[in-house]
């Protein structure tokens, strides 16, 4: 049984979650728990780094669907970065790239947050 590991780092004012492994209906609750905790702590500028995410199913996408409004309604966002092409393809099939900021590098997600704030 493959698992999901989630590393949490603080980069300036941003909370970065690194996803390692597979995000499916079995592991989605782990991500949900971490996201909920951040939101409860009023941390609303979240970057999810998917560099080591090998696989995603719709249950994983569902977690992003369920919490994005919570952070956006208070001026924050969940931005996604460093996806491999296979994982990106699943987001793309469902039209996520028009609804979410998905960027190649974590650094770009930070820059986007900074330019969002100065707008």
């Amino acid at each position: 049984m493959k698992n999901l590991n989630i590393n949490h780092r603080q980069v300036g004012n941003y909370d970065v979650l690194e996803l390692i492994g597979e995000l499916d209906a079995h592991t989605a609750s782990q991500l949900e728990k971490v996201l909920k905790r951040l939101i409860n702590q009023e941390k609303h500028n979240i970057i999810v780094n998917c560099e080591d995410l090998e696989y995603i199913a719709s249950a994983g996408l569902g977690v992003f669907m369920a919490y994005i409004e919570d952070v956006r309604s208070v001026g924050g966002d969940i931005k996604l970065s460093n996806m491999n092409p296979k994982v990106y393809n699943v987001f793309d099939l469902l039209g996520f790239p028009t609804l979410y900021d998905i960027v190649p590098e974590e650094e770009e997600a930070i820059q986007k947050f900074e330019s969002d704030e100065s707008e």
């Binding site: 569902g62 977690v63 669907m65 919570d70 469902l94 996520f96 609804l99």
Partner: peptide
Amino acid sequence: ICQRIKEKKRGGVGVY
């Protein structure tokens, strides 16, 4: 999907 996000709903996309 856009509507479901606004309603904070998840899932319902597997069959699609």
